[in-house]
Design a protein around this nucleic acid. Sequence first.
DNA 1: TCAAAATTTGATAACCATTACTAATTGAGC
DNA 2: GCTCAATTAGTAATGGTTATCAAATTTTGA
Lengths: 137, 137
Amino acid sequence: MKEFLGKDMRLTNQRRIILEELQSVSTHPTADEVYGLVRQKMPRISLGTVYRNLEVLSSLGLVRKLENAAGQKRFDGDTSPHHHIRCEVCGKVGDIYDAPDISGIEKGLHSDFQVTGFILEFSGICPHCQARQQPEQ
Amino acid sequence: MKEFLGKDMRLTNQRRIILEELQSVSTHPTADEVYGLVRQKMPRISLGTVYRNLEVLSSLGLVRKLENAAGQKRFDGDTSPHHHIRCEVCGKVGDIYDAPDISGIEKGLHSDFQVTGFILEFSGICPHCQARQQPEQ
DNA sequence: TCAAAATTTGATAACCATTACTAATTGAGC
DNA sequence: GCTCAATTAGTAATGGTTATCAAATTTTGA
Ligand SMILES: [Mn+2]
Ligand SMILES: [Mn+2]
Ligand SMILES: [Zn+2]
Ligand SMILES: [Zn+2]
């Protein structure tokens, strides 16, 4: 991790553990949930430190910040290219690795904006909420 | 508009003017900006009434609600199918009417979620911010 | 026609995720 | 180890949104 930090940035225990915990789960936790995870290893860390470092890590490209839908921001320790699906009921986020490749779809659009990219996000219902929603029949 | 309201819902002046104002612009205003527009016609309306009715109108399908964790919600009086592009600098939203059709892309994905749909949103830089960002050369 | 019931409003308070502030602490180069 | 800028813990502030509720408005129906 050290090699990714800028020259005036320090590798603190807080920073290292936040990244490690985020990389150890596949749940796309919110900042608050990351806080819960990290406190098991480092009980005196503050929520502000978690927010601050999630922002630092995402601007360094070490984590992905998911902010293109309703609800709280979520964070992803998996920076490999993949899409996400968000539960319409509870907001939980899952991974989609096999979506058709639509790269380049942003080229040649008619817009006065300078187009730089796109985000494709799926919506659905997570296993837990499926079970809750059809209890009968 | 009356025909779209539920049987226990009333067509108030507030409700009608909010929809009319939203349909009269193509700027995808925030709730606060809708409040500003509506107050020109109805100076004593409250911000809470604007929020409440934007929610009602969007649940009836009369307006589109554009949610994003990166900023404020925005509202669209144009319910015809089209995509959006968001300015990375200022958050302004524009329309994209000529994106390639990717409907059906959500079918056959490998996920334990029940997949119901998708959102494709473009990102870019709006004309105003383009002018501000490259002042030289 | 008129009073009771239902809905909606305006005003304001509460909420809550996130950011800002600041004195104390600490990582890293010398 | 010493120095000092970067970082932290703790807490306050922010800001968009939602909740609350008495008053106003509209509908119902006797
Ligand atoms: Mn992911
Ligand atoms: Mn639009
Ligand atoms: Zn769910
Ligand atoms: Zn812009």
